[in-house]
Each structure stands twice: as structure tokens, then as C-alpha cells.
Design a protein around this nucleic acid. Structure first.
Length: 123
DNA sequence: CGGCTGACTCTGG
DNA sequence: TCCAGAGCCAGCC
């Protein structure tokens, strides 16, 4: 049989593929990515982001927490870089330092893409 | 094969 | 409205 199941490769690879679908000028939340991936937790997404190699082609800066804020982490510099990149893409921050998700939240990948990946489009 | 390590989210008081 | 606690999974030594 074919082996196109997303489970065929490491879950981290799948998560990275999904993040790559996020267009510039939009953001997605950890929970949203987890939901798209299927059986996956928001933490897993965060773990994946932390493990990305420097210079990765994955637009990790477009992934924020459920409050629309840049999640705190050990490397403060990367936090600043993240905000800088997002502003460069046209995303604006409110006074409290969060992003207005009503305006910038990604609608999710297209139905066809999900099917290609062997994911459940109903999400 | 056991243990360690990570960039989250939700619920209740 | 704010804070604390619980749930949770894969990779890599």
C-alpha cells in the first residue's frame, strides 16, 4: 500500500510542514497548529519550534500563543527577532504587546492541501 | 532501555 | 481579573 500517511514521518516534520503554509502577514496559534496536525498537543508544537535549527526555512515567527503574544522562552534574543520579523510583515502589536488575532489570525490551510497531506479536512 | 528536556492551553477558585 | 495546577508527547543521550 501507499505510505502517504502523515504518521509515516516524524510528527515534528508534519508540524513544520503546516507552519510553512502560514502566509506572511498572518499568525497561527500553537493550539491551532496542533489541531490541524490531528493527534497532537499544543506543547508538541512548541517543542518543535524550539528544536528548529537556526536558519530554518520554517516561518516560526508566525506562531504565537493563544493570547496572541510571543511566548517567553530561554533565548530572549529570538523573542525580539520574532517581533521584529512580524512587524516587517505588516503585523501590528497592541499596547499590551499582543497581536489582535481578530485581524491577523490565519484561516488555516486550504482544504486541498489537507487532503494531500492525508489530514482530516474537517478540522 | 530509562531519564531528561522543551517557544502551551484550559479550568477552577 | 489574576494565579496555580494538571495534562501531555517525541527525540536524543
Amino acid at each position: 500500500m501507499k505510505t502517504e500517511s502523515p504518521l509515516d514521518k516524524p510528527i515534528y516534520a508534519l508540524i513544520r510542514d503546516i507552519v510553512r503554509q502560514i502566509p506572511a502577514g498572518r499568525v497561527a496559534t500553537y493550539g491551532q497548529i496542533a489541531s490541524i496536525a490531528g493527534k497532537c498537543t499544543p506543547r508538541m508544537v512548541g517543542y518543535t519550534m524550539s528544536g528548529l535549527p537556526k536558519g530554518s526555512d520554517v516561518p516560526w515567527q508566525r506562531v504565537v500563543n493563544a493570547a496572541g503574544e510571543i511566548s517567553p522562552r530561554g533565548n530572549f534574543e529570538s523573542t525580539l527577532i520574532q517581533r521584529d520579523r512580524l512587524e516587517a510583515e505588516g503585523i501590528t502589536f497592541q499596547e499590551d504587546g499582543s497581536i489582535k488575532l481578530d485581524d491577523f489570525l490565519w484561516a488555516g490551510p486550504e482544504w486541498g492541501w489537507l487532503v494531500e497531506q492525508g489530514l482530516n479536512p474537517e478540522i
